[in-house]
Amino acid sequence: MPLPQPAERTKIHTRTVTCEGFERTDGLWDIEGHLTDIKTIPITLRDRSLSPVNPGEPIHDMSIRLTIDLDFNILDAVASMEHTPFTVCPSIADAYKQLIGLRIAPGFTKQCKELFGGTNGCTHLLELLGPVATTAFQATHQAREARHEHASEEHRPHTLNTCHTFDSAGEVVKKYWPQYYEPDKLISSKQIS
């Protein structure tokens, strides 16, 4: 269902976040995130130039690439800052090499905030790491499923109890993963309410 009709308005700003996943020929995966901020009106940035930034010209234009394996281990990380409001901004890009050796797993967002929060990083690159991490799951899904099938082992769905749809007491789990269906969970949660 689309959003309801808005009030009369004028567009001023567009933030675009694009994330892509690439399977490499060496068996690894590159997950890339790209963020731009663009205005529809000219603005002046103190440190960037004496002339205004024209409509359509990026204020922020930055990217990050994580190279991972199918277990979500980060083997390489590189950040790039093509357009920034201050000339000093790109000097923090190399800090994102600290991601090497981490694993995209529960707690990853907290680790990123500890590493890059406040003056230790760039707000925009830190925000970009969330969608990059979820893109890693989406991009590698079929390859991970195929790996489990080849191992011919019964595996617990990684999405179990991660959202409303994958509730272990819900209809989706009952239909597609009946061995993990927990109808008693539904009864006990209703008794608590």
Rank of each mutant, 00 (worst) to 15 (best):
T44A: 08
A143V: 08
I64R: 02
L28T: 11
I43V: 15
N73K: 13
T109F: 06
I12M: 08
E23T: 04
D37P: 07
T109H: 14
P4Y: 06
Y180S: 07
C122W: 08
L102V: 03
I92P: 00
G170T: 13
T10G: 00
W177G: 03
E114K: 13
H164T: 13
P131M: 11
F72H: 13
D76C: 00
T123A: 12
G33F: 09
A105P: 01
K97L: 03
A146W: 07
Q138W: 10
E57A: 10
F72A: 09
E23K: 09
P58I: 09
F86S: 08
C122E: 02
G118A: 07
F108T: 06
L70W: 04
S80Q: 04
H83W: 06
F116N: 01
G121V: 01
Q138I: 13
Y176S: 00
T140L: 12
H60R: 01
I12C: 02
T135M: 15
H150E: 15
D61H: 13
K175H: 09
P131Q: 14
L66R: 00
E127P: 05
G170A: 09
S91H: 12
E57Y: 00
L126D: 09
Q142D: 14
V173Q: 07
C122F: 06
H148L: 14
L70M: 02
L3N: 11
E182P: 00
I68H: 01
L115V: 06
P2G: 13
G21N: 06
P52L: 04
T18F: 00
L186T: 12
K174G: 05
T119G: 07
R9W: 05
D76S: 14
S91Q: 15
H164L: 10
L128S: 10
T109M: 14
N120D: 08
K11H: 03
G118V: 06
A169H: 15
A143Y: 11
H13W: 01
A93W: 09
D76W: 00
F108W: 05
V173H: 06
M1H: 09
I68W: 02
G117L: 04
K110W: 04
T135L: 00
T44V: 12
A143H: 12
A7P: 00
I192A: 15
